[in-house]
Design a protein around this nucleic acid. Structure first.
Lengths: 155, 155
DNA sequence: GGCTTACTACTCGGATACTGCTTGTCCGAGTTCAGGGGG
DNA sequence: CCCCCTGAACTCGGACAAGCAGTATCCGAGTAGTAAGCC
């Protein structure tokens, strides 16, 4: 039960894409900025493009740029974009199998275990959706100095 | 990012162990109750034993029994017992790598991305810790009928 | 008859294979830009 | 001098391998119960 490291890569890359304003940045430069594998980061960026968090520009001088401001991108958006489905617990309905399943009448309603786990995940989802990337940008002091460093690293 | 199905197995098995009161139940019978792999369930039960949620009794007529009442076992206890560590996001500090890492001064404090993800996980942990197995037992109507079915299935 | 002792059967416990997902890599499709040729 | 066309280089996009955690299985260590032998 470990979250894909693509989520971490995507979050930092989105923050970097916000520092440079305007033109698209290639996945190779974005990868070099943090010493990542360019091809694999490209894969993650494609996922973000499908989720409409970034737009991809093909051809030379192409790359990726933010599709919308960081204020409107939540942590949940990124997690769901990369992981596909932000569900942790998958009920396999074992209550219906085996001896107990045979002896018991067909169950009604959802599994109590599943419901409990789902409630906990709901709290997680809400906490993820409550934080947007602009707040994180504010937390990691995005001073003009930092902004200029990022911009020069992505040149 | 999928939780091990061992968590589901463990939760149902703990609830079953509460239905039969007293003597230990072998992993083979517990597995048959839900049509699971006995050896693999045994592995999960060993994890629960290490976490002091159940006690194992060796030898013939041995097996596992609850170490303490369901009221004092939370969902978080089970998740941590099976998964080992209930952390989803693992920060690899990529902010210190690559060009940005070289150009920037050594970072101070924890990574903002990490902190944000940690906050969300904290909400999840609290929601897990807030629910104990006795509440789940109450939810899945543990009528005397059900209780008798489980007990006969574990004979 | 009662006690001791050896044996057997049954259970947990950990070491050992197998599978699917995460991670990483490669090559092709498409597009922009530049340079040369023609009008 | 301006426009068009062709070529090349660069980018995304998806298809193709390698590594690792989750999944499943098997066999050995240990113990309780039992039965036989002895006092």
């Amino acid at each position: 039960m470990r979250m894909s490291k693509g989520v971490e890569w995507a979050l930092h890359t989105l923050l970097n894409l916000d520092m440079v304003d305007g033109g698209p940045v290639g996945s190779a430069q974005l990868a070099e900025a943090h010493g990542l594998s360019a091809s694999y980061l490209n894969k993650q960026l494609q996922q973000l493009a499908r989720a409409a968090l970034v737009v991809s520009v093909p051809g030379p001088r192409g790359g990726f740029r933010l599709a919308r401001p960081l204020e409107s991108i939540t942590l949940l958006d990124v997690v769901e974009a990369i992981e596909g489905d932000a569900r942790l617990f998958h009920c396999t309905e074992i209550r219906c199998c085996g001896r107990i399943g045979e002896l018991s009448p067909p169950p009604t309603g959802t599994c109590a275990v599943n419901a409990a786990m789902r409630r906990a995940e709901e709290a997680w989802h809400q906490a993820l959706a409550a934080q947007n990337l602009a707040e994180i940008r504010a937390e990691l002091d995005a001073t003009p100095v930092v902004r200029r460093i990022v911009r020069s690293a992505l040149r």
